[in-house]
Write a protein that binds this DNA or RNA. Structure first.
Lengths: 144, 144
DNA sequence: AAATCGTATGCAAGACTGTTCATATGTTGA
DNA sequence: TCAACATATGAACAGTCTTGCATACGATTT
């Protein structure tokens, strides 16, 4: 609650800052807790190899659970659990056609996020362009 | 290894795919394991509120550990631990000046990543532009 | 030199997360 | 309707991760 308070009568136990001004401004412009946790949640979803693989697979277009499992080499149950999380955070969305459920990326942010991530890691864009999206043709086929 | 094989003499135990062709292409264009884990690692670092707060604080410019702790309301030990991880993955870098250690964002990717993340979550850009960077002036002060 | 300050690190505890196994739901074909 | 299929869900275990506490290290001041 308090910290660098405003009651000069009581001596502050800890003015423990080096650049109090910077701290104040940084704290002022800090997003609300809910915003921060939401943000962390989204990144957390991308913070695991299995889910990353699933999302990369979905870059090619929509896929059903079984095929996703085969693609990422994981049990269908695990994939279903992962998709449940991704779905809950609007990262993917389902379209059911009879017994099978087709999953696809929910919005373009994820695609950009993945590309940027790879860029940061240093691997220069191994991903395919979006299926009919606005990504400029700047990707080369991988050399296996 | 095998999957939707080519030896018709032995009956495939599991042709367990709906769209074998799609699975094949998706699997072919799947990045190597090391790439995927690296990517997941980076996102994983952003997948936690404390670290997100630290990074958001660093958007304002470099800061020392003590001030970061005061800003994100966390113990200095916890901040130091967090910074250790971020440092290991080249997300932040240190510049020591005497006894105090100034941390700053290592590259511009993180900034864009954070902005995109917030955009996805729906909160329209509460972040400050980079200190002397190329971000267009599209941010308004928050209304507390 | 001694004391202090800012930071880093080891260890342990608690919380969290992903996968598996078993089972449930709903759909299609016989 | 019954069996087979595609997916979803629940519980539980295993592994990971974050935080706090105690302590160590280097730099600075007295």
């Amino acid at each position: 609650m308090n910290a660098h308070g405003s009651t000069p009568t009581e001596r502050m136990p800890l003015p423990r800052t080096v650049d109090a001004q910077h701290v104040a401004s940084a704290r002022a412009s800090m997003p609300a807790d809910s915003d921060v946790t939401d943000l962390a949640d989204v990144f957390g979803l991308l913070g695991e190899p299995s889910r990353v693989r699933i999302l990369i697979a979905l870059l090619d277009g929509r896929m059903c659970v079984r095929d996703l499992a085969a693609t990422v080499q994981l049990s269908e149950s695990a994939v279903s659990h992962a998709l449940r999380l991704l779905r809950a955070h609007r990262v993917v969305e389902v379209h059911r056609s009879g017994r099978i459920a087709y999953y696809e990326l929910a919005d373009a942010h994820v695609r950009v996020l993945l590309e940027l991530g790879l860029e940061h890691v240093g691997h220069t864009m191994l991903l395919h362009p979006a299926p009919g999206a606005s990504t400029p043709p700047a990707c080369a086929p991988r050399t296996p």
